[in-house]
Design a protein around this nucleic acid. Structure first.
Lengths: 197, 197, 197, 197
DNA sequence: AATGAATGAGGTTTCATTCAT
DNA sequence: TATGAATGAAACCTCATTCAT
């Protein structure tokens, strides 16, 4: 009721409002969110959306960048730290943190990584790359066994992702975290292949 | 006058033709397949499709059931076999087999498990259940360590699924299988938790 | 008032209804006509339009083909006729006929030949080609002078087109026809170049 | 801090900058040019455009006036010259000049004369009026035959326009000019109607 | 006088589903 | 049982014009 007032904002502020509106909706409804929904949530006209995002995919790309930046900021790699690193603990800690982070952003993850958008992206697969870097670092420190880093990182990350989804869907978070940490410990434990039957 | 012959088939036969046409197309084109495509491939009219499948989702459900049945048939649980089972080898063999099975059906998997359809299903998660049953059986035979069967099965299955996708997308199949088998061996190896740092 | 009845027609009949509706509107409003207008005029749903014409351009292409076919049918080339042809009279007659034909279809002509659609077409320029064929035929019969057929046909056709537009816009039809016939007679009259100062 | 300097110009100067920017773009891209493009090229804000031109059509009207003025300045009527005028040569010269002038401004011509804008204008048809004045003058000097000046001017101008378009589109300029000059010579040649079969 | 953020009606196209035949 | 013509609700995107600053 009452005509919507035309609020004039600085471009970055307006763009941010739209992205945040989109994130709220994506979080709640995942892939199903449409431009129409976002502009209603953000309280702007349809044209305003396309003023800041030439296409829907550009919005998703922006959300994706923000998500990755947020993740990077929250859980920086311990590589740079001086002194010996307790790699098993680091990885276990990251795993728990990732589950909490990703399960709280399940809808966004779905829209970004399990949609047509994902197919169109030539994903740098940052998360997997990160994980395989950690595995290599741990191997160099002789904290981890001689597993093949890239495929193993891919497999473990799939587990991480699935765990987050399960937690978001209502699974027991603590059991999930425990299982994941056990899995990772065993997967990366030092020891020769033949010691594992 | 060139009027196409309307073949009158027994309902199950007609339904089967449609499902098989759908499977061929889903295999090739995944989520992108439309009703239009299926009826053309099956050589039936559009209305006929909805005669046998009240909605598109019902078709996918049927495809899903068949896929699971096929998997069950191809890789029956070794539980029933008499005599001692070499659990590690069984699991390793199943892993390789599953990758080959699923990577050859990547399009179907995408349409079934990574689409809006998947969301609407209250998946019984048969495959995960199967895997956790195997883990339990191995544990009873003291071939596997004391991991939590359900979550571990979920995580390992996520890895299996991702491995199949990667192979379908062109990754090195043998490296993938090797990494997966190593992961599973280590994950399920006997031994107390404290032996894994 | 009252829900629109769903009339089921044979595809050709329905397609024809849509084309004819489009022609009526194009005739009246030229380039301004939109899909929305056509479906309202034809009394069909929007989807029905795209059932028969994959895109708006396909409709225009169909209208174009019909227009050219109609023109060809109405004014067949006299080339095939036995016996000597009175070329000047033939051309004069065609000119008058073309003006009447095209001025009665001005809106359609605009939509087809003076719009973005025209730019997208690699026009075979049928009308100009026809005219230059006539000029060549008349030259072979020594009824016309030694003008360059192609460019001359292009120029004369531009005159024809403009004349039709002027008549459609309200100009004196008879004066226009007379001027055009005079122009053509003089343009094609036998005689060497130097006889024209 | 990098804030762009707002140049305060006399209104006519600012308006001129916009028009010239528009002309450059129209020349290059014809009908496709948008307000957005013009303001970027002119280096002004969008609102400024509408300060000087109440609507897009007003810009086009201004461009049109300038185009006609430029044409008038470049090729003044020889009417005012003392002494006998070689009318055929004058017209032939004008024809060649017009083709070169117009083909070099094809994009502008398209935007002005073959667009929705053209429809909305009640064109004074200056160019045609000019041409018919020349024909009358030549007739008074008994250099031209007894053709109807207005319609003939309209038809010949259509030819001129089409020739320019063809040349801009890549046709052989010299052949086009020659054909046009021949056409005009023959169209206006002295002689009674009955001498042309 | 000048800016540029904001608007929103309007345009084409897609496709699961319906229903007259 | 079978057909396939018909539907219409979305979906994304454009751009001349407005107006708060």
């Amino acid at each position: 009721m009452g005509k919507p007032v035309r609020r004039r904002l600085r471009p970055e502020a307006r763009k941010l409002e739209i992205v945040e509106a989109a994130e709220r909706l994506l979080q709640a409804h995942g892939r199903r969110v449409r431009v129409e929904d976002v502009v209603r949530e953000a309280g702007v006209a349809k044209g305003t959306f396309f003023l800041y995002f030439p296409s829907w995919d550009d919005l998703l790309a922006t959300v994706r960048e923000r998500l990755i930046a947020e993740l990077d900021a929250a859980y920086p790699l311990p590589t740079e730290v001086d002194g010996p690193v307790d790699w098993p603990s680091v990885v276990a800690g990251l795993a728990a943190a990732y589950i909490d982070f990703a399960s709280a952003r399940q809808g966004i993850g779905q829209a970004l990584f399990h949609s047509d958008f994902a197919e169109r992206q030539t994903s740098a697969d940052n998360a997997v790359t990160r994980l395989s870097a950690i595995i290599r670092a741990g191997q160099e420190a002789e904290a981890f066994g001689p597993v093949d880093p890239e495929p193993t990182a891919l497999l473990l990350f799939a587990g991480l992702d699935e765990a987050a989804r399960a937690v978001a869907a209502g699974a027991d978070r603590d059991a999930m975290v425990a299982a994941l940490q056990t899995l990772i410990r065993r997967a990366l434990a030092p020891g020769k292949p033949e010691e594992f039957p």
